[in-house]
Computed example of a mutant assay.
Amino acid sequence: MRFVSYRIGDEAFYGAETEGGLVPLSPHFPHWPTLRDAITADGLHELALAVGQAKTWEVRTTFRTIPIPNPEKIICVGVNFPDRNAEYKDGQEAPPNPSLFIRFPRSFTAHDQPLIRPRASDKLDYEGEIAVVIGKGGRHIPEAEALDHIAGLTLCNEGTLRDWVRHAKFNVTQGKNFDRSGAMGPWLVPFTHAAQITDVRLTTRVNGEVRQDDRTSRMIFPVARQIAYISTFTTLVPGDIIVTGTPTGAGARLDPPQFLKPGDVVEVEAEGIGILRNTVEDEA
């Protein structure tokens, strides 16, 4: 099952992407205006049942949005693969706890929409990642129970302006939050079993060339550990998104560095989830 969020004109909707086309669901569930509301009500199973009864609708004027368009929090995990940690060449072993930062929803665009290279910088870089969407919230979630708190999975290109992450002494907020510099999608895949996240191949391609290629089983901090750690200091709520970390191979680490430019096509792919595809355009 693949749930999508989209717009027609100024109106927001959600539905299911099927082989036959789009199945609108939100008109049948007005008490759940967004997918976040459906997740809060533990309603994804009910939505899935409705897909078989609803009429497939091919609409060519839809504008895809990120799967959860109104999350309370988007928390990103940095430096979470062994080779990524080694890139820093500071002689340090993997840290005892994950490095975290926050992104705003406006910093992401949707599948098949362009990433925007801003006027302020020509150093837009890609970071392919898997994002987990929280279904059952809580504080102090035990690691052994953490995966039970996931509603679904999606993909993320955690686009970064490399020079702007060094504008301050140690925070990266600026370089991670330019409008539409990253992407999320193409859909939300319901999470039903641990194998969907524990050992999954994750790749990123730029213009067809593989730049990143690793498996989630090699994460320094597995997803269950991330959820347990984050819930120690903040209450996770349904619809919150955790962007779980990117492998080595970003453009800034190539020799010479290769940043994204207008016309490039970036694809992030993960087994069992799909492909997130975006072009690149300059800010108007």
Score class of each variant (00 low, 15 high):
residue 80 N to C: 12
residue 121 S to C: 10
residue 107 S to G: 06
residue 46 E to R: 15
residue 92 Q to W: 09
residue 110 A to N: 13
residue 86 A to T: 11
residue 74 I to Y: 08
residue 62 T to E: 10
residue 108 F to I: 09
residue 58 E to H: 04
residue 95 P to A: 15
residue 104 F to S: 07
residue 54 A to R: 00
residue 33 P to W: 04
residue 57 W to Q: 02
residue 136 K to P: 03
residue 60 R to V: 11
residue 101 F to Q: 02
residue 51 V to H: 01
residue 33 P to D: 01
residue 109 T to H: 11
residue 106 R to N: 09
residue 145 E to P: 00
residue 129 E to K: 14
residue 131 A to V: 13
residue 124 L to T: 14
residue 105 P to N: 06
residue 86 A to M: 09
residue 70 N to S: 12
residue 121 S to K: 07
residue 90 D to C: 07
residue 37 D to M: 01
residue 110 A to Q: 14
residue 55 K to I: 10
residue 82 P to Y: 04
residue 125 D to K: 07
residue 33 P to A: 03
residue 86 A to D: 11
residue 98 P to I: 11
residue 41 A to H: 09
residue 44 L to V: 02
residue 51 V to T: 08
residue 96 P to V: 13
residue 109 T to V: 14
residue 55 K to R: 15
residue 81 F to C: 13
residue 83 D to G: 07
residue 104 F to H: 03
residue 102 I to M: 10
residue 105 P to T: 05
residue 126 Y to C: 11
residue 134 I to W: 07
residue 66 I to P: 02
residue 67 P to A: 05
residue 76 C to R: 01
residue 71 P to L: 06
residue 126 Y to I: 13
residue 124 L to G: 05
residue 112 D to S: 14
residue 138 G to I: 09
residue 59 V to M: 09
residue 55 K to L: 12
residue 90 D to L: 07
residue 69 P to I: 12
residue 84 R to A: 13
residue 134 I to L: 05
residue 77 V to S: 04
residue 45 H to Y: 07
residue 37 D to L: 00
residue 118 P to K: 09
residue 41 A to N: 06
residue 141 I to Q: 08
residue 35 L to P: 02
